[in-house]
């Protein structure tokens, strides 16, 4: 497809192109960090970076809603629970002792990547692509936002109550032995 832009927009297009490359780099680099990091927490951070990059690519595909959901669910919820899991589980001491050989890593990575590229590529080529009948309206996020603040404003406000209860509850569960002077009944 060919796009033509007005001259005054050329600069903006350039920025958009640079950002696009940035997202691709973030996706790939994050993925490499996620696979290669020795510290588990670094791997999680790499994964977050990669997922953010993917979210950016969704924006370029014109689906802002999926992009927002990607950030909300994967970058937000899934990664946070991974961070919790990493922090709660003590990593085994000898985890660092036996890293894979560098060549083994590259080799197995390349095999898996080629396999994935083959499968996805075949599917993409085999699929009879047709042009979408209608362009996705740019208003999807807008509609959700408007709905949240008009018809569903009550539910939106009630979420703050749920969060308040969750914070109170987690603080009570998390704090230890406050003024429970003798730990006879407690001690967990």
């Amino acid at each position: 497809m060919d796009f033509t832009f007005a001259t005054e927009q050329k600069f903006l297009v350039l920025i958009a192109d640079i950002a696009f490359v940035g997202f691709i780099v973030a996706t790939l680099f994050g993925g490499i960090v996620a696979v290669g990091a020795r510290q588990l927490i670094h791997a999680v951070l790499g994964l977050i970076m990669s997922l953010m990059g993917v979210a950016g690519l969704y924006v370029y595909l014109g689906n802002h809603f999926i992009a927002a959901m990607q950030i909300l669910i994967y970058v937000g919820a899934v990664s946070i629970s991974m961070v919790f899991a990493v922090m709660l589980a003590r990593p085994p001491e000898d985890a660092k002792a036996k890293p894979l050989m560098f060549a083994t890593k590259i080799g197995s990575g390349a095999v898996i990547a080629l396999f994935a590229a083959f499968v996805v590529g075949r599917a993409v080529i085999a699929h009879p692509w047709v042009k979408a009948a209608t362009v996705v309206k740019e208003g999807t996020i807008r509609q959700i936002g408007e709905n949240l603040l008009t018809t569903n404003v009550f539910v939106f406000e009630l979420i703050s109550l749920v969060l308040l209860v969750a914070i109170t509850g987690s603080v009570i569960i998390a704090k230890r032995g406050r003024d429970n002077t003798d730990q006879q009944g407690g001690g967990v």
């Binding site: 539910v155 979420i159 109550l161 230890r176 009944g185 407690g186 001690g187």
Partner: peptide, 24 residues
């Protein structure tokens, strides 16, 4: 939706109450 959020408000508070004494 309101019913679901109300259910969560109720339940989360009770999860915390169930562990309030921190016995095993």
């Amino acid at each position: 939706l309101l019913m679901f959020l109300a259910l969560e408000t109720m339940s989360i508070a009770i999860y915390a109450l169930a562990g309030f004494f921190r016995t095993k």
